[in-house]
Amino acid sequence: MTGNAPPAVVAEGLTKRFGAFTAVDGLDLTIATGEVVGFIGPNGAGKSTTIRMLCGLLRPSAGRASVAGFDVGRQPEAVRAHIGYMSQKFSLYGDLTCRENLRFFGGIYRVPRPVMEERIRFAIAMAGLEGREDRLVSTLAGGWKQRLALGCAILHRPPVLFLDEPTSGVEPEARRRFWDLIHTLAAGGVTILVSTHYMDEAEYCNRIALIDAGRLVAMGSPGELRGLDLGGALFELGGVAAGAALAALREMPGVIEAAIFGDRLHVLVRDAATAERMGPFLKRRAVEPGALRPIAPSLEDVFVRLVARRSEEEEGGGA
């Protein structure tokens, strides 16, 4: 992260209301130039709405935001000229070829003519579309489409990129490749805000913004987030009938939270003593206790816990 450069994205109290529903609620966010920030949260958390406001596609109901030094509300056109955007839904022209789409966006972004062909060649090479330049986009598979969309979004060399769930519905191999591209761009100084609901992708980001119900729940590097105090100790319970064990543990005193991860359970307990009582407790409930071992929380554990804690606080505060 470059020391003194002004932040690429700043949001202060950014809020979006649709009628009575508040999609984004007083969001504060600062992204330094050259950072790759992952936007993580459940569906409907407000990720897309936030990105759309930062792109000038939605007008904030309250608060302000600036992107690449331009105010989103007052200078939306200047913002648009300095960003690249990939919407959640694929939105290139399916009835145009790859090259025609690139030409179109190159023209719309007024890419200087002398470098146009070179930029298009670069985008095609980046997307791995050599030999498919003249195929209609509607005939391409998902991964190619996504990489072409990224290619169209960076033709004008924008300093800031907003990618809204760019890898959803894309096969794992293509997702991997896509993230390589993101890091290549970031290495070139591009600031990238990318939303995803794939937990493993969070690990690829410099920092993660966890958002739930329109609010920023936590923000930090993957390491920082994993090190957050969950309010207890985390154990993994293997070799059990997960469903029955889960039902039983949710009633056990001292268990803060239990969740199924594959064929195992992750159990957050208040203290080590609770963990020791777990085996006998399960036996009494006629559940075969499996192997219990302490584990370090994964990002997913952290997210699950933070989101749950927030809604508990909500309910507590509301009552």
Partner: peptide, 12 residues
């Protein structure tokens, strides 16, 4: 077709 969102994110 969903192409409008991309189009209006540009300076056009």
């Amino acid at each position: 077709r969903g192409t409008m969102e991309q189009l209006i994110s540009t300076p056009v």
